[in-house]
């Protein structure tokens, strides 16, 4: 599906898109790269699109802290579960707790007007670039 024009999701931005059958996907722009995650938090269903982007605070031992990967984590607006925007893996249990991730990439409008992707709520213009999500 076509999530929207690239210009609509600037670096640091995000967009919530309807993926049909009630599913929602949130698309993030991380410094020009696009990532798409299911919007529903696997814990209790909070809307990840409404959360803040944050980073990793790590501590090799008590009292020694560093802040890394600023803006690369999304924190659920309800219970603060954090997920890596690039992988969908949770911060506290990355192996077992993940939010579904969908491949996303940019395509030129000229390549999209022929299909197969669909954009039901806006017209696709050949001269623009679009974010495409494989969902």
């Amino acid at each position: 599906m076509i999530a929207g024009p690239v210009a609509e999701i600037p670096p640091g931005g995000r967009k919530l898109v309807e993926a049909g059958e009630g599913r929602r996907i949130v698309v993030f722009n991380l410094d020009g790269e696009f990532y798409a995650l299911a919007n529903r938090c696997p814990h209790q269903g909070g809307s990840l699109c409404d959360g803040i982007r944050t980073g990793h605070v790590t501590a090799p031992e008590p009292g020694i802290y560093s802040y890394e990967r600023r803006g690369e984590m999304i924190r659920c607006p309800w219970h603060s579960w954090e997920f890596d925007i690039r992988t969908g893996k949770s911060w506290f249990d990355p192996r077992r707790v993940q939010v579904r991730q969908f491949p996303a990439h940019v395509e030129k409008g000229s390549a999209l007007v022929e299909g197969p992707y669909r954009a039901e709520t806006f017209p696709v213009r050949v001269e623009d670039d679009y974010v495409v999500v494989e969902a």
Binding site: D50, P77, W78
Partner: peptide, 10 residues
């Protein structure tokens, strides 16, 4: 408290 005013952000 975890989130501003200890509240859901939404």
């Amino acid at each position: 408290k975890a989130q501003p005013m200890a509240s859901r952000r939404d």
